[in-house]
Amino acid sequence: MDAATDAFVSHRNLLFTIAYEMLGSAADAEDVLQETWLRWAGVEHGTVENHRAYLVRIVTRQALGRLRTLGRRKESYVGSWLPEPLLTAPDVAEDVELADSVSMAMMLVLETLTPTERAVFVLREVFDVDYDEIATALDKNPAAVRQIAHRARSHVAARRPREVVTQAASREALAAFQRATETGDLQALLDLLAPDVVFLGDGGGVKQAVPRPVVGSSKVARMLLGGLLKVTGWTMEPAQVNGCPALIVRFGGELDTVVAVRMENGLISGLYAVRNPAKLSHMTEETTLRR
C-alpha cells in the first residue's frame, strides 16, 4: 500500500486537473479523486505496468460518470452556470497551453461538448494521451475515438477565441476595467468592451445575479456602473484565476465575486462573474494544476 499511496500522491495534481477540466467543478473533482483512490487501493498493483496511465483511466471513468450527473444538476440550476474558479499558482500561467485550457472562456467552450467529446478532447488535446489509451478508458475502439476527437476539435475551434492573448495584455485590460468601474467612467468602460460583449453572472440562486446573459457594450457598461454605484464598501484587486489574470471583488473586506474575462481583438468580449458562495471555496489558497 505504501507504493500505491506514493504513486497516487505523485500523480494527484495531474488527476485533479483532468477531473476539473472535465467537470468545471473543483468540489466534484475532489470527490472524483476520492473515488479514484478507493478503486486504486483495491487494484493488484504488481500487475500494473504504468501507474500513471492506469490512474488516468480510473479518474476518466469516474469523472465521466460524474459529468453526466452534473449535467442533470445544471438543468435545474438557477440562472447562468459558470465553472468554479480556482486561485492558481503562478507557474500555471507559465504553461501557456495549460493556462488556456483551464481559462474560464475555454471551460465554457468545453461545456458545449457532449460528455464523451469533452473527455476525449481533454485527454488528447490537453494531456496528449494516445488514442489507444483513451479508447481503453472509454471502452471504445481507437477509430471511434479518433472520430470523436476530430468532431470535438472542430466544435471547439469554431467557438474558442481565435488569438492567444498574452498575460500582460489581459492584466492591462483588467487594470483599465478596474479604473473605469472604480471611477464610474462610462466612456472609458465602453472603450474596453467589444460591441457584442456578453456578461454572465452566477449567483446560484443564493446571491443576486443577472438571471440571463446581458449582451452589448452599452447594456453591460450601464448595468455594471449602475449596480456598483448603488452600494458602498466594495473593493477590487487583481488575482490569478484559472491560470489567467482576473479580479476579486470584496464587500466589507469579504470575498464576494470573482470576475474573469475573455479577450478578442484587444477588447473584452466576455465578462464572467461568479458570486455563488459554494463555488468560491477554492479562492482562499492556491491550487496546483499539472499536465
Rank of each mutant, 00 (worst) to 15 (best):
V274I: 03
W40F: 02
V261C: 05
A105M: 08
N242E: 07
I268M: 03
I148L: 14
T284S: 10
W81N: 11
R39T: 15
A239G: 01
V220Y: 09
W40H: 06
V92M: 05
R291T: 06
T36A: 12
S217E: 13
L224D: 06
R212K: 08
L14I: 00
Q167C: 08
G71K: 03
R66K: 12
Y272C: 00
T166H: 09
P115A: 08
V210H: 13
R162Q: 15
L229D: 06
P213Y: 07
A221D: 07
I134Q: 02
R118D: 09
G253H: 04
R68K: 11
F127G: 04
A176M: 11
W234N: 04
L33E: 07
D28G: 04
D128T: 13
R52Q: 06
L98D: 13
A144G: 13
E125S: 14
L225G: 09
A7E: 02
T47A: 15
Q240M: 13
R250K: 11
E84I: 06
T112M: 08
T287G: 02
R290K: 13
D91Q: 12
G233P: 03
E44Y: 12
V96S: 07
L108A: 00
V241E: 03
S76Y: 12
V249Q: 11
G203R: 05
V156Y: 11
A158D: 12
R57I: 10
D130P: 13
L190Q: 00
A168K: 14
L110I: 01
R290E: 14
E75K: 14
N265T: 11
V109M: 04
G226V: 11
V165C: 15
A135I: 03
L225W: 10
L113W: 03
Y77P: 05
E49M: 09
N141H: 09
L229F: 11
R57E: 15
A29Q: 01
V48I: 09
P211I: 01
A93I: 02
E286W: 06
S281C: 07
Y20H: 05
H45V: 12
S10T: 09
R151G: 15
E125P: 10
L14F: 00
P211T: 00
S25H: 04
G270R: 02
L15S: 02
V48T: 01
L200Y: 05
N276G: 05
A144L: 15
M104K: 02
V231Q: 09
A188D: 14
A188P: 10
R275M: 00
R159L: 08
I268A: 03
G216Q: 07
A137I: 01
R291D: 08
L193T: 02
V56D: 06
K219H: 15
E237Y: 01
P85K: 06
L174H: 01
A209Q: 05
A157T: 09
T166G: 11
V249Y: 13
E111K: 09
E172C: 07
Q34W: 13
V198E: 10
E254R: 08
